[in-house]
Design a protein around this nucleic acid. Structure first.
Lengths: 137, 137
DNA sequence: CTCAGTGCAAACTATTTGCAGATTT
DNA sequence: AAATCTGCAAATAGTTTGCACTGAG
């Protein structure tokens, strides 16, 4: 079904695109940096260049297959678009990313926008957190 | 009282720092890009370089005088730290920035973090909006 | 066969840094 | 005078683009 997604997006089915899509779908993490994907591809000796990774991710983003986040720090973070919107908790110590969804906050955002005579088009909410626990690194 | 703030931050009182602080305090906007500040300084023929603008803003940030935001788009946005935390609505058409504060969302964030066994260290919430008006496209 | 897609290197943008001279204390 | 600060140019980091070649349809 990967191929269908690409076709639907008007993109030719090429090795780099399939490879990256597969990677996004099957890896044990959901959040990737372009450089991170590139490194994995290098390890697999795929011969896919960093520029292509960026191009493919950008195309996927336009096609709605992927969502791009701008957390703190320089790099963009990409994740497969599973359809259900969510926000993120970023562990400031480890960089771990956790997803969450809170309907109360979602609703609140809409009414805040409305109160200011605006229509909510998009939003970004990120919680930067530290673990609470006795055993830390 | 500008000078006091600088002294307290352990920063020498220099022309660039005073100029930038004054600019941040007295301008009719509250949100600035480093480049934007630099352009104003150029117009005033102040002879202050872009590198210095960045250095000063970074120092101000460390000193807590200024807050840095990473909205969509490449550049960082800086604003004077007035103490009261707030989030932002960004008008995606005009770039206008509006501040808001919502206690319900603030509380919700804290409990979400807690639910995931995290302590909220910082957070960033930005609503990207469009004006509501009778004449729409 | 045609045109989109690719790799590579070079270009770009935002930001940082090294250094020698200028300023603050 | 000592130490910090500054301007400039060069360096960096992330991302994008031009171009000749490769590969999908």
């Amino acid at each position: 079904m990967d191929k269908k997604d690409l076709k639907q997006a008007g993109l030719k089915i090429t090795r780099p695109r399939l490879k990256i899509l597969e990677l996004l779908e099957t890896a044990n993490q959901r959040h990737f940096t372009a450089e991170g994907i590139y490194q994995i591809l290098i390890r697999e000796d795929s011969g896919i260049g960093l520029a292509t990774v960026y191009r493919v991710l950008t195309q996927f983003e336009s096609a709605g297959l992927v969502v791009r986040h701008h957390f703190e720090g320089a790099q963009s973070v990409f994740e497969l678009n599973y359809g259900e919107h969510h926000d993120h908790i970023v562990d400031v110590k480890t960089g771990t990313i956790i997803e969450f969804h809170d309907e109360i906050i979602e609703q609140r955002q809409i009414s805040i926008a409305k109160k200011h005579h605006y229509k909510l088009v998009d939003h970004s909410l990120t919680l930067y957190c530290e673990k609470i626990s006795s055993d830390e690194d």
